[in-house]
Design a protein around this nucleic acid. Structure first.
Length: 502
RNA sequence: UCCCCGAUAGCUCAAUAGGUAGAGCGAGCGGCUGUUAACCGCUAGGUCGUAGGUUCGAGCCCUACUCGGGGAGCCA
């Protein structure tokens, strides 16, 4: 592929040279005889300086009147300029407008999420969204690189399937020539059969969950990567998972530092993400949740929230009571923006204050045997600065295929990996039950029909081996790394419960 | 499914005690040679989500509905 256009990404190799950029007008400011055009070309942003006299007069006039997102080419000399976005800028000598854009709906000011999702096809052009897309790309590439470099074979598992991974999960039904089938929620069962062929395998694709989950951590369609390994025990699997996640983090840190900075991600926290991660058993977690330490932790947290609320309210009152008549317009503007920001932070803090006692109660009353709830995971996660493995969950709370711990028949050899600082679960995995009779009995106990799992049971009939694997949610990983409050920003076109915008 | 909050200009938000609907951005025109969500001046832009009710009078109060946001359960 060749192009006559230079990319903004490669400007550092082009200082002093005359080049042509092709892109879109991201933003522009004009000041009489000088114009500042911020151009984006898909590889970055570049400020282009148009001075009257340096370009033909009619070009100068045309550029003054083109709207945001007009497409154009600009030609000029590149120089380093620390004041400029990206560190370089172009002294424009010529330009060509390709297509004029008028009334672009997404302005440089703030917008509501509903509006942005309705305009998702355009919102993707915004810088922060672009940063997330770039990081998502790196995450996916790092995922593939890790497995490909470590002897794994890619196995594509079916999207339309007749077998369910979890028990009575809500699945999307598909009319398959008259037979009701459903969209896959995991490739795991098929993957296990491939692991018995290739040893180490992984699948990577979209997965579908019809759960009625309306939270910032859920999508109905999301991407998941699932490795599956033959001849592995739980400690080996945890090691694989921590090396895997660490390699993703370090790739993003080295390839997308600028994007992380633009997004306001916590880079220092990410730099700490190296093996080994914390290892807790489910029982440890129950003890932590019901301990005085946790009680105090939550009480302190509530105090912090209340203090935060007070500070925000004070600041709001301060801004509101200012004599606006005397202020300059730009100051009013800034205050208005701050007020909007403060009000939304306040609303969030109030929700946290409201939730805190409920979470404290849930944690304190936690009984061994129940699955860990979202708030419980958040508490554990908040107490740690690195990802946490939670292992050995009660058998009754978990899926039929998880291997019973032979040393403690009440628990299974599984794990969840919680991302730190309150983010919560990004991986779920387990060692799989490899004993034929035990697996049949688990299937029966959970009210499932063994005849639906015949081929799956075959894997335990013909050369069964200890094996296991896990699933990592791509969007959750991206949301964690980029410090996004909501997962819906981490997939180009999100599908949420009852809501598909475009 | 349940709980909380919201809907006012293209967008983000105001409207004090129920009394003539307001600002910024964006759009259009003009001014300004270093701007960083630039700035300054002017212009256009509204059936206050829908339906009903209370009232001399409703953006504001009441009822229902629609749509949206957040949270719970469940999960990656």
């Amino acid at each position: 592929m060749s192009s006559n256009y230079t990319t903004i990404k490669s400007l550092s190799e082009n200082t002093g040279k005359q080049v042509t950029l092709a892109g879109w007008l991201y933003n522009s400011r004009a000041s009489g005889k000088i114009q500042f055009l911020i151009i984006r070309d898909g590889t970055g942003l570049c400020q282009c300086i148009v001075e009257k006299g340096n370009v033909p007069d009619e070009i100068f006039e045309q550029l003054k009147h083109i709207g945001q997102e007009s497409s154009l080419t600009v030609t000029g000399t590149i120089r380093a300029e620390p004041r400029s976005v990206g560190g370089y800028e172009m002294a424009v000598t010529d330009a060509k407008i390709i297509s004029v854009s008028e009334g672009y709906p997404i302005t440089p000011k703030s917008h509501g999420i509903d509006f942005l999702l309705k305009n998702r096809h355009l919102h993707l052009r915004s810088h922060l969204q672009w940063c997330i897309l770039k990081i998502r790309h790196t995450v996916i590439d790092a995922v593939r690189r890790f497995f490909n470099d470590n002897g794994f074979t890619l196995i594509d598992t079916p999207i339309i399937t007749s077998i369910a991974g979890e028990e009575e999960q809500s699945l999307f039904e598909v009319d398959y020539f008259g037979t009701p089938l459903h969209l896959t929620q995991t490739g795991q069962l098929h993957l296990e059969s491939a692991a018995m062929s290739c040893g180490k395998v992984y699948c990577f694709g979209p997965t579908f969950r019809a759960e009625k989950s309306k939270t910032r951590r859920h999508l109905t369609e999301f991407w998941m990567v699932e490795p599956e390994v033959a001849f592995i025990e739980l400690p080996g699997l945890l090691e694989l998972a921590e090396n895997f996640v660490s390699s993703i983090v370090s790739r993003v840190l080295s390839d997308n530092r600028a994007e992380l900075e633009a997004l306001g991600a916590n880079i220092e926290a990410l730099e700490k993400i190296t093996p080994p991660f914390y290892r807790l058993t489910y029982t440890d977690c129950v003890n932590i949740l019901t301990s005085d330490k946790t009680k105090d932790f939550l009480v302190n947290q509530l105090q912090e929230f209340l203090e935060e609320k007070k500070q925000i309210e004070t600041r709001i009152t301060e801004l509101e009571s200012q004599d606006t008549g005397k202020l300059k317009q730009w100051q009013k503007d800034k205050n208005a923006a701050e007020l909007i920001e403060l009000r939304s932070t306040l609303a969030e803090t109030e929700i946290k204050i409201e939730n805190n006692p409920r979470h404290a109660q849930l944690a304190a009353a936690f009984k061994w045997g129940k699955d860990l709830g979202g708030s419980d995971e958040t508490i554990i996660s908040l107490m740690h600065d690195k990802p946490i493995f939670v292992t050995h969950y009660p058998k009754q709370a978990k899926a039929f295929y998880m291997k019973t711990d032979r040393e403690n028949e009440d628990v299974v050899l599984n794990f969840d990996m919680l991302a730190p600082a309150g983010f919560g679960e990004i991986i779920g995995g387990s060692i799989r039950e490899d004993d034929y009779d035990r697996l049949v009995s688990r299937i029966n106990k959970q009210g499932l029909k063994p005849e639906n799992y015949e081929w799956y049971l075959d894997l335990r009939k013909y050369g069964s081996v200890p094996h296991g694997g896990f699933g990592l949610g791509i969007e959750r990983t991206v949301a964690w790394l980029t410090d996004q409050k909501h997962i819906r920003q981490c997939i180009p076109f999100p599908r949420m419960m009852d809501k598909v915008y475009i």
